[in-house]
Every structure is written in C-alpha cells, then in structure tokens.
Amino acid sequence: MTRTVAEHLRIVSAALPTAAGLGAEEIDVRSALHRITASDVVSPVDLPVFRNSQMDGFAVRAADVASVPVRMPVYGIVAAGDAPRDLPDGTTIKIMTGAPVPNGADCIVPVEDTVLGGATVTINRGRSAGDFVREPGSDVRLGELLVPAGQKLGIQHIAALAAAGIRTVRVRRRVHAAVITTGAELVPAGTPLGPGQIFDSNSTALATGILTNEAEVIAVKHCVDDPRQFLAMLRSVIKRVDVVFTSGGVSMGDFEVVREALTPLGGWFDHVGMQPGGPQGLTILDGVPVISFPGNPVSTLISFQIFARPALRALAGLPPVESETATLCSDVVSPRDKRQYLRGRMTDAGVEVVSGPGSHLIAAMARADVLIEIPAEVTGLKAGSGVQVWPL
C-alpha cells in the first residue's frame, strides 16, 4: 500500500539511532567547532588565574593617589609573563596589560592619566581600590560550569575552553554514514562517457548532504546492477556506520539491484505518494538502517531533503528546517493523490517555478533555492495562491 510522505518520514526517522545511541568521543578542542558537548565541562582553574592589570599604566596604592596631582618614583616595570613583584611604600611600578599586579598595589592608574618624567611619574587622577585590577576567578572559578552538556560549540566556547587550559572535550559522536549508488550506466566525473553512460552525480550529492547536516561520510561506493555484488559491498561497510543511503534500483522494473538484494532480507520497497521520488525503500540489516532512494538525480536529492535531512539534523543537534508561506508567481498543476515538490526560486514578488516536474532536470534544479510543496489533495493552484516552501 502506498505510504504518505508523513508516514514514510516517521518510519525513516524512527529507524535511525537516537542521539544517546551514538555515544560520545573525546576530541581535541581545536577540532571541536560545531560539535555537541556530551557532558558538562567545568573549569579546572580560576579565570583569571592570577591578579593582573586591565590597562597599561602604573600600579599604586589607592591611598597614595587620594590627593592629586602627586609625583611618585617609578620602581621598575612589570610586563605580561613576569613574576609578581613587591611594591615598596610610596612608589609606583609601571605595568603592562595582563601583567601580574605587584604585591601591595590595589589599583592601576591608566597611562593616559599620567605624565612620565625620567625616574618619576606625575599621577593626575586618583583611583579607588580595585580599579582596573582583574581578580582571580572574577570570570569563572575552579569547578564552576564552563560549558553545559548539549551545547553546540561555537568559537566563543572553544575560546573559553582553551583559556581554561582544556585540551580535549567530550562530544557527542556524529552519525557515520555510507553512500552506495547503483547503475551500470554511471561513471565517475572525469571519465570519458561511453554509449548509454552518464556521470554519477548522486554519490556527490548524497555525500555533500550528509556533510552539510554535520554527519560523517565513512564510505562512498558505486555498484553495477549485480545483486550479489551490491550485497557484498553493503556488508563491507555496514559494520562501520550508523546508516547507509543508496540510490537507484528500487522500482518495479528489471535490474532493480537494491530491491532484488534486500527484499529477501526483509526490506520494504513500495511507493510513497509524492512526485518526484515515489519509489522508496527501507531495510534494517544487522541493526543498521539502509535508506534507499530512487536513482533519478532530482528524485534522489529531494528524497534526501525530505526524509534524511530532518533526522540527521536532529541527531546533530541542529535546529529543524522550517517551511514558510510564499505567494505563487504563476499557475501550477499537480497530480492527484501525490504531494508534489516543485523547484522554485524566491523573488521579491513571491516564488517562481524554475523547472518542469521531470526527475532528471538536475541542472535546472541548480537555479532553485526552495522546494514548493503542493499537497496531495490539490490538483492546481492559481498565481497569487499561498504555498509552503522549504529551503534547500
């Protein structure tokens, strides 16, 4: 029986592992951008680690500059990276930003409030205790939460982890995926085309879609129309991945290699009420979902966007892609009982259809930035009608 798009999406999503099932891994902080923390990260140190100066200036006791202007001897200089020094009574020490505040000093007079003259400095503005002094732990204290579990790590989080001296962080493991394209007619880009041959775009498109949704591509393979070869190829990758995506070989004709190989193993192959992308397949092999899309390039790409993208984004901790309402720029027709996904481009006037419905029109799809969704019960819409569009 034909499934609806919603039914097949629910079944495919349920077949993929949960985030908890993916486990966690420890990785270098420098490689952790956009990864999701698997547990709370607490600071192993106080930040700042020691009392240091917020400004270039002069370290003093506030009581010594309560009445200004005042002329004071300069007892040396302390720079960032120096060891702390003691401040003799009645003197000041020149200090650089980030340098340790001398013992006995309780504030910093910025250099712009002073006039240096040889071995002395004139202080023209008084300061209160604590001014321009960064105290240890004023940013975060030892043992306090630095980054919570479930946080997608941005550059600001990476910076905080590095500042606390953290070299590795425990993150949620990404989905590991493999791609297998099928069809004796397919050859890699750069290969001279023989009679009846076309370039294999689906392997590149699916691998790119996986990476875009922050999963990892473990293997990309191609198989001719031989069920035994396909099954051997599938078994060679399935132990290393969480999901396999295939393209081609799922219809009801001859040489449907994926359907022929996987139906005896419990695979489901039938139609989903959509256009393009009607033929679909799903098999659980050795506990790993094998999600099978039709082979026409547009069908493959739209199938991935509708059925794989939502689940992969959820597992990666990414926000769901939301549809929005747009106004049609022209009339459209649609087959009864099939949810149609037309390729569209957003303009100031609304959304315009950029190609026909053919599932082979991949070059025309390159002009699209949205999919226009026409519900299954609708057979036509006039220009000016509102439609749901999904960003590509």
Results as ranks from 00 to 15, higher is better:
43 S>D: 00
43 S>K: 01
43 S>G: 01
43 S>A: 04
43 S>T: 00
44 P>G: 10
44 P>V: 07
44 P>I: 07
44 P>D: 07
45 V>T: 09
45 V>H: 01
46 D>L: 06
47 L>G: 01
48 P>S: 12
48 P>C: 13
49 V>Q: 13
49 V>E: 14
50 F>C: 06
50 F>Q: 11
51 R>G: 12
52 N>A: 12
52 N>V: 08
53 S>K: 03
53 S>V: 04
54 Q>S: 14
54 Q>V: 08
55 M>C: 14
56 D>I: 13
57 G>C: 07
58 F>Q: 01
58 F>Y: 11
58 F>N: 02
59 A>L: 09
59 A>W: 09
60 V>I: 11
60 V>H: 08
61 R>P: 03
61 R>W: 05
62 A>K: 07
62 A>H: 12
63 A>C: 08
63 A>P: 03
64 D>I: 11
64 D>W: 14
64 D>H: 13
65 V>Y: 06
65 V>K: 06
66 A>W: 00
66 A>M: 04
66 A>E: 08
67 S>R: 15
68 V>D: 07
68 V>A: 05
69 P>V: 08
69 P>D: 07
70 V>W: 10
71 R>I: 13
71 R>E: 13
72 M>Y: 00
72 M>P: 00
73 P>S: 06
74 V>R: 07
74 V>I: 15
75 Y>K: 10
75 Y>R: 12
75 Y>L: 07
75 Y>H: 14
76 G>D: 03
76 G>M: 00
76 G>L: 03
76 G>V: 02
76 G>P: 02
77 I>T: 15
77 I>L: 15
79 A>Q: 15
79 A>N: 14
79 A>T: 14
80 A>H: 10
80 A>D: 08
80 A>N: 08
81 G>R: 11
81 G>Q: 10
81 G>I: 11
81 G>D: 10
82 D>Q: 12
83 A>Y: 06
83 A>P: 00
84 P>M: 04
84 P>I: 02
84 P>K: 02
85 R>C: 00
86 D>S: 13
86 D>Q: 12
87 L>M: 01
87 L>N: 01
87 L>D: 00
88 P>N: 04
89 D>F: 13
89 D>L: 13
90 G>Q: 04
90 G>F: 03
90 G>H: 04
91 T>V: 04
91 T>L: 01
92 T>Y: 01
92 T>W: 00
92 T>D: 03
93 I>P: 02
93 I>S: 01
93 I>K: 02
93 I>G: 03
94 K>G: 10
94 K>A: 15
95 I>M: 02
95 I>S: 03
96 M>T: 15
97 T>S: 08
97 T>R: 12
97 T>D: 05
99 A>W: 04
99 A>K: 04
99 A>H: 04
100 P>I: 09
100 P>L: 08
100 P>A: 10
100 P>R: 10
101 V>Q: 06
101 V>F: 06
101 V>E: 04
102 P>E: 06
103 N>C: 13
103 N>Y: 15
104 G>D: 12
104 G>F: 11
105 A>G: 06
105 A>S: 07
105 A>R: 05
106 D>Q: 09
106 D>K: 07
106 D>R: 09
107 C>E: 09
107 C>N: 06
108 I>W: 05
109 V>W: 05
109 V>D: 02
110 P>Y: 09
111 V>F: 08
112 E>M: 12
112 E>R: 13
